[in-house]
Design a binder for these strands. Sequence first.
DNA 1: TGACACATGTAACGTGTTACATGATTCG
DNA 2: CGAATCATGTAACACGTTACATGTGTCA
Lengths: 180, 180
Amino acid sequence: MAKRNILQFIILGLLNQQARTGYELTKAFDSDIGEFWSAQHSQIYPQLQRLEADGQITHSDEVTGEKLNRKRYAVTPAGAAALNDWLAADTEPTIGGRDEFALKLYFIQSPADPRLQHMLAVQQEFHTERCAHLQAQMAAKFPEGQRADNFGHYLVLDHAIRRETAYVEWLAAAVKQLAR
Amino acid sequence: MAKRNILQFIILGLLNQQARTGYELTKAFDSDIGEFWSAQHSQIYPQLQRLEADGQITHSDEVTGEKLNRKRYAVTPAGAAALNDWLAADTEPTIGGRDEFALKLYFIQSPADPRLQHMLAVQQEFHTERCAHLQAQMAAKFPEGQRADNFGHYLVLDHAIRRETAYVEWLAAAVKQLAR
DNA sequence: TGACACATGTAACGTGTTACATGATTCG
DNA sequence: CGAATCATGTAACACGTTACATGTGTCA
């Protein structure tokens, strides 16, 4: 899995869009970017420190209210260069992530197994709902083929929708071929 | 990512199908099961030792030729029970694995970016070829809707094909909306 | 006899998750 | 004033990859 520390580039990419705090970066992984990567704050804060020590980002202190301090990070020219190097480098194609559910199905040999019905139904419900949620997002953010700006965002949303749609179709096809 | 040590159950599942050596288990991750999980021998051998210490598997020694020893592992009743518990347990739905390429696209804001053309073409070639390879496998292993036996195997192959197909379609749609 | 597949292990390191820990601000 | 959110960190542990290490069997 992880090997070349992708996280640092994601942080650079996000900060390159706009200056952010560690907290805001953490939340970015809950929305659109969460479709293709995840990270917790316990990983992000140390990474920010390393990037700053490396001279790829800097921060300015901000105060909210009386005492609360937050650090707003921004990329340096060196950071922007590192980001561009990453973007320009060859990308090892993704070869299908890990899927515990698919794995379980693999070990159930018989299409008559009594557990299949329920297992498939649960997954179907989840992914169908998820699919609808993504389509709603798409409709909200890109109403009229408004893809010119934020093209990247559009592409990953489209990707997520296609992926979930294919997943739902796979589950439906599986259900259809169940018992007999 | 990993959290509940899925690997142990995969090993139990594979050994439940038939007794295998560590080497054979390692190779299983290069074929069909590799679509949804990967593991190296350096992870597998220690895991086999732990499973045996736990009483979930046992091994018998085999000799090939003059000296070469291999250990053929098989599940114990306790191991089979653990496997069934895992299969019966609720499965957290997969929420889209990590995809470095999708991530890069996300950070490229403009559909006129000169890098896009080449990036997409490279991925397109890879995934198209992969798609064809999977379909060939399907045709070879399940010729005439021969899904009754090895139903699990059929399902994961079908899953992989649908996933790759969707990926290829996504890339094609992206290319179509490129410059202008 | 050399290359390649078979076969099994350990070590070092990096990444990722969960838990621990603390405190401020805002809103009802 | 209590709950939710904002905000930032550290520690412990589990998981995964790469590299190190060694030796046998088979086939051309």
